[in-house]
Design a protein around this nucleic acid. Structure first.
Lengths: 136, 136
DNA sequence: TCTACACCCTGTAGTCACTACAGACACAAC
DNA sequence: GTTGTGTCTGTAGTGACTACAGGGTGTAGA
């Protein structure tokens, strides 16, 4: 098999850090295009696919949904590559992340208090269960 | 219907802030006990169920899984109410929350940078798409 | 009495983003 | 010919709900 024929899914998986089942899943839901096949029916990929998959991985890592990723890929493929829509999407993600941060910081505070009141578990009535049993 | 017969699921939902489908779901998976029924087949609840459901809601709000919630309820029902296990669970949750906070803060930084480089979307090549296309 | 309406029932399927598996085929090395 | 690794398809499972469809219950008003 000449190298020009491309790599198979296992190699793509190793090179991109995305696992095989996930790659097939992405193809199935249209995040990745249908890969051409070898005579034996194996999916064949080229270098551009590694980059595309890395793009997906990074976007997912930033918390974009697969719907968003699909749109980002379309925008990246487009000729204009205009920023407006992308800017809005990134801004939306940033707002989500910040909202989540606020939530989690509050949570952290509550949990710290709980754990602190608990001391060493020597009390007859667990203060954590007690706290859960009454309005915060 | 005398008030002593209890409230129905709609009232429980309103009083606890947990939606009806979710209450039934909790019953189905054993987080809540099977509710007794009226002659017409309606689930009937009493005041203690409102408290129990509020407990579940608060625990879920702190990020405990439903498996954890089940265990917490069992511990809360137990006679000892000893702290050790609860303490460990809360500690585990706290560690999760803190790990998530680290992730999200990093994410926030990356997104802030992206949005900042984008400026007003006047550039010919979108820097956000550009950033996604190359190793971070 | 009839009817409208809110409420509730069961059971199933959908969501998101994977992950895991069964059972079969492809291909290279020994 | 056999072994081993890689890959294929298709389906089902995860967690924590949520959303129906298609029916029954109970009550208030005409």
């Amino acid at each position: 098999m000449a190298s020009s024929a491309g790599i198979r899914i296992g190699a793509l998986s190793r090179q991109s850090g995305v696992n095989i089942e996930t790659i097939r899943y992405y193809e199935r839901i249209g995040v990745l295009p249908k890969a051409p096949r070898s005579s034996g029916g194996y999916r064949l990929y080229r270098h551009g696919d590694v980059a595309r998959l890395a793009f997906v991985r990074r976007a997912r890592g930033l918390g974009f949904s697969l719907d968003d990723v699909r749109e980002l890929l379309t925008l990246a493929d487009g000729k204009s590559r205009s920023c407006q829509r992308v800017y809005n999407m990134a801004g939306g993600r940033l707002a989500d992340v910040r909202a989540r941060l606020v939530d989690l910081r509050r949570l952290e505070g509550v949990l710290v208090d709980m754990v602190a009141t608990c001391a060493e578990g020597t009390l007859p009535v667990c203060p954590i269960l007690d706290a859960l049993g009454h309005a915060a």
